[in-house]
């Protein structure tokens, strides 16, 4: 299946989050060992420039870990938002398609052929997927176009795009220049 820009971005973000998790673990371990070392130095050597500097390093590590964790949460939230938006969008399209198919009173076989058509499969592909003769598929598609009152695949597809654009008016997050 082809990746859209959004799914690509989600994948990149997921890789980034995994890498960041590993970095955070390393940072956390480094923090613990540094804090332990500072503790030892303070106990045996008391307060001196060396132990103070080490304490500052330990503090910087802890802060770095904390900010890294905050950044990771942002990435995870971004992934979640993108996934939610995508599932809402695909869910909305699916609902729309189902509603139209019912309205046109397509038979289950015709509905399946119509769905494959919308997904961009050609007659040979659909025939193969359904294990039917190409002639049968062609006849079913003709029926679908007739019931939907369109001239062909292009018009059928644009019906749904039109509907989506109409329904996303106001509700969607369109950017206004």
């Amino acid at each position: 299946m082809n990746d859209t820009a959004t799914t690509r971005r989600i994948k990149t973000d997921k890789r980034r989050a995994s890498a960041l998790a590993v970095v955070l673990v390393v940072q956390a371990l480094a923090s613990v060992f540094f804090i332990a070392d500072v503790g030892r130095d303070l106990r045996w050597g008391g307060l001196n420039p060396h132990s103070v500097l080490e304490a500052v390093v330990a503090l910087a590590l802890v802060l770095g870990t904390t900010f890294g964790a905050l950044q990771m949460r942002q990435i995870l939230n971004r992934i979640k938002q993108a996934e939610t938006a995508m599932s809402i969008a695909s869910g909305a399209l699916f609902d729309l398609i189902e509603a139209r198919f019912q309205e046109w009173e397509l038979t289950p076989a015709e509905a399946e052929v119509a769905l494959f058509t919308l997904k961009g499969l050609d007659i040979a592909d659909i025939a193969q997927a359904r294990g039917a003769a190409q002639g049968t598929v062609r006849a079913q598609m003709t029926k679908v176009y007739a019931k939907a009152n369109v001239s062909g695949r292009g018009q059928l597809t644009s019906l749904f795009i039109e509907d989506l654009l109409a329904t996303s008016d106001g509700g969607g997050s369109r950017e206004v220049p």
């Binding site: 613990v32 964790a69 949460r73």
Partner: peptide
């Protein structure tokens, strides 16, 4: 010490994580 560090990180994540 490693386990303690991992626990500390998980506890931090419990405060500021998703």
């Amino acid at each position: 010490y490693t386990a303690a560090g991992l626990l500390a990180l998980r506890l931090l994540w419990g405060l500021i994580g998703p």
